[in-house]
Structures are given as C-alpha cells and as structure tokens.
Design a protein around this nucleic acid. Sequence first.
DNA 1: CCATAAACGAGACGGTACGTCTCGTCTTGTT
DNA 2: AACAAGACGAGACGTACCGTCTCGTTTATGG
Lengths: 198, 198, 198, 198
Amino acid sequence: MSSGTRHPDPTRRSERSRQAVLRAARELIAEVGYAKLSIEGIAARAGVGKQTIYRWWRSKGAVVLDAILALSQGADGIALPDTGDIEADLKAVMRATVAEFADPAFEAPIRALNMEIAIDPELAAQYREKLAGPVDEAKKERLRAAQRAGQLAADADLDLALELLYAPVYQRWLLRTAPLTPEYADALVDHLLKALRP
Amino acid sequence: MSSGTRHPDPTRRSERSRQAVLRAARELIAEVGYAKLSIEGIAARAGVGKQTIYRWWRSKGAVVLDAILALSQGADGIALPDTGDIEADLKAVMRATVAEFADPAFEAPIRALNMEIAIDPELAAQYREKLAGPVDEAKKERLRAAQRAGQLAADADLDLALELLYAPVYQRWLLRTAPLTPEYADALVDHLLKALRP
Amino acid sequence: MSSGTRHPDPTRRSERSRQAVLRAARELIAEVGYAKLSIEGIAARAGVGKQTIYRWWRSKGAVVLDAILALSQGADGIALPDTGDIEADLKAVMRATVAEFADPAFEAPIRALNMEIAIDPELAAQYREKLAGPVDEAKKERLRAAQRAGQLAADADLDLALELLYAPVYQRWLLRTAPLTPEYADALVDHLLKALRP
Amino acid sequence: MSSGTRHPDPTRRSERSRQAVLRAARELIAEVGYAKLSIEGIAARAGVGKQTIYRWWRSKGAVVLDAILALSQGADGIALPDTGDIEADLKAVMRATVAEFADPAFEAPIRALNMEIAIDPELAAQYREKLAGPVDEAKKERLRAAQRAGQLAADADLDLALELLYAPVYQRWLLRTAPLTPEYADALVDHLLKALRP
DNA sequence: CCATAAACGAGACGGTACGTCTCGTCTTGTT
DNA sequence: AACAAGACGAGACGTACCGTCTCGTTTATGG
C-alpha cells in the first residue's frame, strides 16, 4: 500500500509505526499546512524515528500520497449511479465533485498531493494507479453504458470525455480562477453531451 | 513590472541588479530544477546581496513570476489569427499551444511558476493580471468574432469555452497523464465547436 | 584567540556569540561530562546557531580548547617563585600541581581537552603554543636560575628535567594508576635533584 | 579473556563470532581510525549481529581492549634480560620500548585503547590487571635483582622508578611533544640510575 | 560640486530542516 | 538459547537555506 520502492523487507515492517506516520501526516497538513510540513515534524508527532520514515518512503510526497490513500481505502468497488438518464447521473456526479473540491477539509491535503505529483512523475504514476485509475475506470464504465444505450456517440473518445468534464473543474480549483458552483457543474455536462450526442 | 508591493522607492532601484536576479533565476531553474532553486543561490549567481532580493520581491515565487514575465514582455498587443474560419484558426492555435507545452525548455520554469501560483493566491492574481489575462482576452476576442460571424452560438459562455479548450491540455501537461499531440489539439477544437455551434 | 583556522573575516565576528559558546561549552562539560558534550547542545545552550560554531571552530575539540584558554587568559606573565632554594621552590610548585590535578572541578574539562589533543595533532600544536608553552618556559627559567646558582648541573637537559617532574604526575592522573599526594610531589623533586646535582 | 562481566553463560559462546569481532575491530581501527570506529561497523565487518557484541562486551572500549589483549596473549611469562649490567639492560629495554612506540602499526589501536582507559576507570583496571600489571611486575623484578646486586639503593621506590622511566616516554608519545629517539631512551636510564644509585 | 541618504555586495547571525549515521534495544526466524 | 539480520525510537552529525541584521561601498541626486 505504501509508495516507496525500497522496502527492505515488508514483513518486518511495524504496522503501528506506519499508521502513526500516516495519521501524523494527515493531522499536520491540516494543522500547519503543506508548506510547513516536515519529515522531522511528522516523525516527532508520530513518535517515530526519522529513519523509519526514510526507510519506507521515498519522499515527503510519498508519505502524503499514502496518507491520502489510506483514507480512501474502502472505496475500491466504486460504481457511479446509473438511473438510465446519463444527463441526470452526470450532473449529480459533477455537482458532488464540485462540492468536494469546495470543501476546505479537502483542500490542504489534496493540494499538497497535487504539488508533489506535478513535480515527481514516479509519484504521479503511483497516484494514477492507486487512486485516479480505478475512479476513472468507474466513470468510463458509466459512459460506456450510455453508449450502449445510444445516449452517446458510439465512437466517442471516453478519455477525452472525462477530461472535458474534469479538467475544467481541476483547473478552476487548482488555480482558483473562478468559483466552483453547481451551475458550473451542470454547464459542463450540458456541453459534453452536446459534443458527444450521436 | 515586478511583483512585490513594498518598493521603498522604485526610482532608486538598480536596474542592473534586477536584470541579474531575473536572469540568474531563469538559469538556475533550467539548470538545477525548481525544487533546488533557492534565494541564496539566485543571489550568489546574480552577484547580488540577498537583501536586494528580499527588498524588491515578496517571495521566491514573485521572482520566478517576474523572471518569466520579463521573457514574454513584447507580447503585449497579442491577437489571434483571424482567417474567418474559426475551426482552422483554433486548430492552428491549439496545435501551437500543444507544441509549446511539449517544449522541454518551457517545462521547468512554467512548472515552477504553476507550483507557486497553486500555493500563493496573491501571486496567482498577479499572474492572471499580467500574463494570463491579456492572452485570454485575445482568445475571447477571436471567439467573439466567430459569434458575430454566426459560427458560434450567440449565447455561448466564452470563459467556459476557453476552459474546455485549455484545461484538458493544462491537466495533461501538469499531471503528465497522457501525451500532447496535434491530433489531440484538433479533437479538442472539434468537440468545442460541436458543443458551441448555434 | 580561537583555535579554528578558517575565520572568514575575524572583524565581523560576534564577540557576544563567541563568549556564549565558550561559556556554554564549559558549563556543559561540567554538567553532563565530555562524552555527552555535543555541538548541538553547546549551540542550544549558548542560544546560537550551529553554523556559528562550525564557522569559527574546526571541531568540538577546538571549542573546548578555546573554552579553557579563555579561563587562563590573564596568566601570561607567569613566573615561578624563586626563594633561592630550588628544592623548596620545586616542592611548593609540584605540591600545587598535584593539588590542582586532584581538584574535581579541574578534572572534566582538562581530561576532555587531553582526549582531543591526543587525537588531533593540530589541536595539540595550538595547545602547546597557547597554554603549555608559556608555562613550560616559566618553569625552565626557574631551573636556569638554579643552574646559574650552581644548584643544578650546568649541562642539565631542562626539557628532560621538566618531563621527569611532570610526566609521572600526568600519567598517574590520566590513567588513574595511583593517588597524587604531596609526598609523591616531594619524592619527584628529590629524585630529580639527585639526578641533576652538579 | 573478554572484558565484559555479564556473560550469561560463557559455555554457550560462539568462539567463531568472538574471534571475528576482535579481528574486525583491529582491522577497522587500522583502516578508518578510532574516531570513526563504530559497533555497527564492527558487527557488519565481522558478519555478526549487533546483539552479539552487546551481549558479551560492556562497551566499545571493552572490545578494543580484548582485541589488543588477544594479540599479546602468548606474552605471559615475560622476563626482562638480565646480563648483570643494569644500565645496559635498561637501555636495551628502553630503546626497544621507544622503537615500539614509534611504530605506526602500534599507533592507532594503542592510542584508541588509551582514550578509552582515560575515560573509563573500570576498563583501566582491567587493562592494568591483564596487560600492564604483568609487564610492570617483570620490570620491577629486574630492578629488584639490581637492588640485590647493590647496583640500586636498597630503599628505592621501584614504582616511582618505573614511572620515571616510562611516563616521559608515554607523555611524549601521547601528546607528540617531542620525538622518541634511542638517545632519549639512554638519557632516561642515565638519569634514573643517577637518582637511584646507592 | 559636494553631502547625504538610499540601495547595494557581502556575509554573519539565530534558526529550522535536511538526510545520514550510530546508539542500544527489541523482534523475527535459523541453527 | 545464542545467533545473524535488521527494524525500531532516539538524537547528533555537518550542510543548506531561511529571513533579518549589520557592515563598509557605491551611486545619484538635491541643497
């Protein structure tokens, strides 16, 4: 589950320490912000030697990724709602997404993670594999169902479709260029469907 | 032109030092990368006292922003090509954009700037005002022309239109989720126009 | 006065910091012992950045040497008593020496210094030049006076004479092989004079 | 033979490990010097678990002492030469001593051992009992023979005599105050005999 | 045409954190 | 039960930068 790749011997690893580190990382991001997050601080808060962190994680970013992964663990078998109405379903999903992005509790750690991912390609790969990938697959599955139902063009590029939905939200959030509102979520869905209708 | 707001007396400022700092910042980002960029290093490379940097810039990010602004100075009166064919014009522009993002020389400093902007809202505001704003305005002007020509719906949300075009490119580039190709540029334009046709 | 040799610019040095470091070093040697003396600890106690210590001193030993040098500063124009009776004078001096070695307050820092000197030849050279040298010279001067008075052989090797007096005391103290008593001091003088009488 | 005192059950001890530790200690002192000698390093070099060292030795110093003891094992029944001429015999012995101290191969480990002994009284006691004691006894035996032969005063303090001979050599070596030459060895003997003649 | 006040280069300062190393203890199989 | 291996909490190491603070030294008017 951890992001490092230098595990000397995973079986010898102290689960107690691992949990303490991830919890401390989460707490500190929320309390002092990502800019002031330090490995030294995480170790102290977790009651753990610094070496224990360096032993199992490649970087501060790897710790942050694991800390967030640990939260969304149970969410494996995710599936998007499917009422048969692709427009209604997508709007519901996008409104939820927009709301999540607007949540201040969501802000700090996810912004931190995105900084790390933008800098460290290897970390980005792990992020995609562990978190983004499964979620994207679920979303594409819903779109595929809509294709089968004749609500979307059969030859639509679903990866691009996802980007048309999510990239604008992501950009607004990351760069704070404009507020994220439910109306905005609806507008994105409307435009997507207009572009992708058969 | 500089981003700080505490200029004790702009007239007394040494232009020679300012240029040396911006040049040093650009060189160091290219050479050692953003993560290892330090004010100490910039000052040393520029042959400038650290205080001179702290006097005129609020933060490392402000220096980076200025360093990049200084490059794109002449580009004030930017205007997009207007052949009358909105599809051809947009595809040309997007292909150029995609090519620019793929340029390795572009990478390091812009990525650095984006990190700072994502963290520092005040810097983001300056970035929008000085760089992104004028460029976006030029883009919207072209879209407005297309509206007047009846090639786009009269009630189209042009801000959203820009996001549908650029946010996917931005996301692919920042998170390295997928390659940026000319075909991708074309596809984005195609989808936009399908969604925005009258 | 300090032992390091990399003084970047002695005129810029903070005398307040220098004093605080030496005082902290002395206090900590007395309190926690030499084995547990750390540069980190000295810096913290002195309210000084670690870099300030590394900037001006080559090693922990150099700090300790300076700390002790600073104590015995005024003792420049040292001269041994000269009553005309070399035996009585030497016995007085050696009894004082023996008493000094037996003083627990003397123990910790001097033992620490001797460890460093035994390991670091460069430090040893500075120790000899700054501390041991002048003292030895004073002792030899007294012996020379005795030679002129016909109480010692004219061709006596005074360096060796000093060693015959002090090396046994030093060895007993350093290795704790036997107690240092006034009688022992007298015995050393008796033997020296028997060996060196004309 | 080992210096620790917590042997849980000496019979269960692995002789192979013990030898490996002592050999590794000797090699590392010679290779990296005493200052950089670590238990971690000894264990790694010896192919031994750290616990094995902690189980059988009280401290790093105890390992070093054992490592050196192991070398001078056979030298139990030592006796100094006795040609009947005390001056010649002592000069031969002292010249040999001086030569031994000047040997670079002798340097590192013995200096290391002396550091430990100067710091740790308990270790010093063991050193005296196991190494210095027997040797000193042999030296005193030779001096006693000289007393019986009327070459030394019958009431001479033989412990002090040994110190007059060896302490100056020890001091010169430890503090590197002056070179150790054969002439110096002779001079020490000459002075001793002048002081101790009947 | 100076004087004078600022900005300047240099870099020392008190600090924080880095990533590494070693300590001495503890845990997990192996022999 | 001792062993090799090595993870663990702890904490010092020496380095890199932070942002602030003197230091003289330009430099650029404005009296």
